[in-house]
Design a protein around this nucleic acid. Structure first.
Lengths: 145, 145
DNA sequence: AGAATTTAGTTAGCGCAGCTAAGTAAATGA
DNA sequence: TCATTTACTTAGCTGCGCTAACTAAATTCT
């Protein structure tokens, strides 16, 4: 999934989009590590921070992973003191996940670093390219369902 | 990294792009599995198919992974009969990786399936959205370096 | 030419993320 | 009330990424 010019024109859009997403994420991974959190943990933490306290199942759905996967992610985040788990007062089976102050802080810093790298590259782009990216984002988010 | 509307405007472009890439890939992963190959294997196979026979190191670089990772990926692809390894006649240390007929065939089918899902969603988009996506792709590929 | 260094790839072994299957406990409902 | 469903956890598997350490070939330097 590399050389887009060698891929015939049958479905190049989907193909290139897929490829671009893979390589974009791979190229950012290094920076992610600087925060001490992996991409999935950072992503989950981000949802907890921005989507407020929420149930584990909802978090799993938001992140498009199964419950056991999210259980483990949350356990690690909790061990690192970034997130707190409390029984849902309304439902004895459920757990409510909330960000701690430290979690909030670390996310912001991590986000700055991680996204800073991307941001740096984006800033180096001509305005037209930036606009193109901007315009495509809503579409991509919709595609990801 | 979910609700873009709750993220302040400091660096929303990079942030949203990152998030969109993550979720896009996650949403495609299921389909990928239908081919029997994981995303990394499919991606590597694709490079071998389209970028012709090439050395393992070059393949690793193209896929932005380290040599040992690529060694393992190639071993699995070879075990599945999708790829052939042969000593490089020009360099006794190097291995040349080439796709087999089966590899080529499977890639095409897999690509159709995998990308077919994306394609389906893309086809459902208004023309303007498709154009926006198209325009952003070159930019994204450049960003991924 | 011969020794030292560099380069290509492999092996070993680790951490982490995804999954399914199976279990517990609480909620729902017949 | 008893059965079923739902929410989460535990156990255990596969696979991908990495680094460190190794072998062997190529290259470089006397």
């Amino acid at each position: 999934m590399k050389k887009s010019e060698s891929i015939p024109s049958s479905s190049p859009l989907a193909d290139r989009l897929h490829s671009a997403a893979i390589h974009l994420l791979r190229s950012i991974r290094r920076v992610d590590e600087a925060s001490g959190l992996s991409a999935p943990r950072l992503s989950a933490l981000s949802v907890v921070v921005f989507a407020g306290p929420l149930r584990l199942g909802d978090l799993a759905r938001a992140e498009q992973v199964r419950a056991p996967t999210m259980t483990r992610l949350v356990q690690e985040l909790e061990k690192s003191g970034l997130v707190r788990r409390a029984p849902d007062p309304a439902d004895g089976r459920a757990m409510r996940i909330a960000a701690t102050g430290r979690g909030r802080r670390l996310l912001m810093e991590g986000r700055k670093r991680r996204v800073g790298e991307l941001e740096k590259r984006i800033k180096a782009l001509p305005m037209a390219d930036r606009r193109a990216l901007q315009a495509a984002l809503d579409v991509m988010e919709a595609l990801a369902k």
